[in-house]
Write a protein that binds this DNA or RNA. Structure first.
Lengths: 136, 136
DNA sequence: TCTTGAAGCTATAGTCGCTAGAGAGATTAT
DNA sequence: ATAATCTCTCTAGCGACTATAGCTTCAAGA
């Protein structure tokens, strides 16, 4: 049995966030002590780890809810789960290539060595979109 | 002179977002028609393009405010602007490498070809963090 | 000139995923 | 017993928008 602080330490999820997840229905309301404090079981710990990990991978709260529903029916086909992972993957890849374009442009901007704003590339480049290497 | 809709079309910034920027003090309140509708000048267009472009590069509203302040004083040194670009760049690079780790993990997850949830990698992998290749 | 339909106005509330604070009560260690 | 630390609920705030309702104005055609 863990207190909420203990659970927080073990999962790396902040205390208010745990309570928020409970409110959102992602985790069940746990048993309470006589003094009304939450006490979590190993199961609660596992579920929260699942959630944390999924969030880190970029799944939204709603998607995690779906995944949790899926995992509650282990006899069913896992197509849905795979589709979700594939969507996540595609999204992550899109974000990567977008960021790489930004990286190139910021590198270009940073390379300038003018001494006053008047002839400095940062403002110039940001002001005039047509100067960009790539569209975004 | 552009209407707000025209400005929106030309910059790709949505109408409510333009009004929001005005409220936040990022763009000046423009002149109005007799009937109280906003009318923008070329300058307004330029400024909004600057803002849009900066947002796309990941600058926050506050950072953009700073950049706009800087550009209003072109006689000053541009160190600040460069520092901001450099910070942005470092941040973008961090985000890229983080996403690349997620990409690898999601690829691994998606590669599974089980037929039911019970022996499917998605849920498994998400549930047990220790299975991850890398820490995150 | 009149009419009609698109576009614009303000104000308010909602989104997502938390995070922070106040003020009270519970638990734990000494 | 007491002090220090945790935890409780409730409310409000964050950033950067987005949506809605109910109204007014504009521009183009008849």
């Amino acid at each position: 049995m863990f207190s909420i602080g203990e659970l927080s330490r073990r999962t790396g999820v902040k205390i208010p966030t745990i309570r928020y997840y409970e409110q959102m229905g992602l985790i069940a309301a746990p048993d309470r002590t006589e003094g009304n404090q939450r006490r979590y079981s190993k199961d609660g710990l596992k579920r929260l780890s699942f959630i944390r990990h999924s969030r880190e991978l970029g799944f939204s709260i709603d998607e995690i809810r779906e995944l949790l529903d899926l995992s509650a029916h282990p006899e069913q086909p896992c197509n849905d789960a795979h589709q979700m992972a594939a969507r996540r993957l595609a999204d992550v890849q899109r974000r990567i290539s977008r960021l790489q374009r930004l990286e190139r442009e910021l590198e270009r901007i940073s390379a300038c060595d003018a001494h006053t704003i008047a002839d400095c590339a940062v403002i110039e480049t940001l002001a005039d979109h047509s100067l960009c290497e790539t569209e975004h």
